[in-house]
């Protein structure tokens, strides 16, 4: 139990929230688009830091999230029931993705469960998530990042922090056909415009 002052950063339904891509108009992709781009706006993001060698820390996280803490590099664990996931970012840092609106209660639950040297920070306002699907999704990523996204190097259940179109992004692969990009809010417009340009040859359907 920690006595850090925290507050619910989600203002609720009474206040208009705008995604960082609220200003773009999207694109109609025709009958067979090669790339389908969607934004999953207003997700909850928590940065978790702690000692993975501490059994109590690992158990506490698993208790709250209902999925084990990933200790292998770049491992992505998902809880499909809750619609949440946790990704290894560095040996002592993880990114927790939650359905929007549940981040505050999860933060409180983690703070109640964990003790000692750890940190939980709500970073929901700073990030957004783009999903890339379609038959040419991987070809689009080949053009955009230096990281090897071939299935032999990038199986389902992996997520990496790497360079994406001269910006930084987290590339995740939660399922066989879906790629997810977690980008900073301030880079969302740039990344979107890069994706529109890079997917021109494949045909893009972007309903943002």
């Amino acid at each position: 139990m920690s006595n850090v002052a925290v507050f619910d950063q989600n203002a609720g339904a009474g206040v208009l929230a705008e995604s960082p891509l609220s200003h773009v108009s999207g694109r109609k992709g025709g009958s067979s688009p090669g790339v389908i781009l969607r934004e999953k706006a207003f997700m909850g993001y928590l940065t978790l830091r702690g000692n993975a060698a501490d059994a109590a820390f690992c158990e506490g996280v698993e208790q709250v999230l209902g999925m084990p803490l990933p200790t292998a590099p770049m491992a992505l664990h998902q809880n499909t029931q809750k619609g949440s996931s946790i990704l290894w970012i560095s040996p002592d840092e993880w990114l927790i993705l939650l359905p929007g609106g549940t981040e505050y209660e999860t933060e409180l639950a983690l703070r109640a469960e964990l003790s000692g040297h750890f940190a939980v920070v709500n970073v929901s306002g700073g990030l957004t998530l783009l999903t890339v699907t379609g038959p040419d999704a991987r070809h689009l990523l080949h053009k955009s990042t230096g990281y090897d996204v071939h299935p032999r190097n990038f199986p389902v259940g992996k997520g990496v922090t790497t360079t994406f179109a001269k910006a930084t992004a987290i590339i995740r692969r939660p399922s066989e056909t879906t790629w997810e990009l977690v980008v900073r809010r301030s880079f969302a417009d740039y990344c979107y415009r890069w994706l529109v340009d890079a997917s021109r040859e494949f045909g893009l359907d972007a309903e943002i």
Binding site: P73, M74, S90, P91, G146, Y147, V160, T162, T163
Partner: peptide
């Protein structure tokens, strides 16, 4: 040595 992978120089 932390990620356990080779990465491109531009990440460093």
């Amino acid at each position: 040595p932390y990620c356990g992978e080779h990465r491109e120089e531009s990440e460093f």
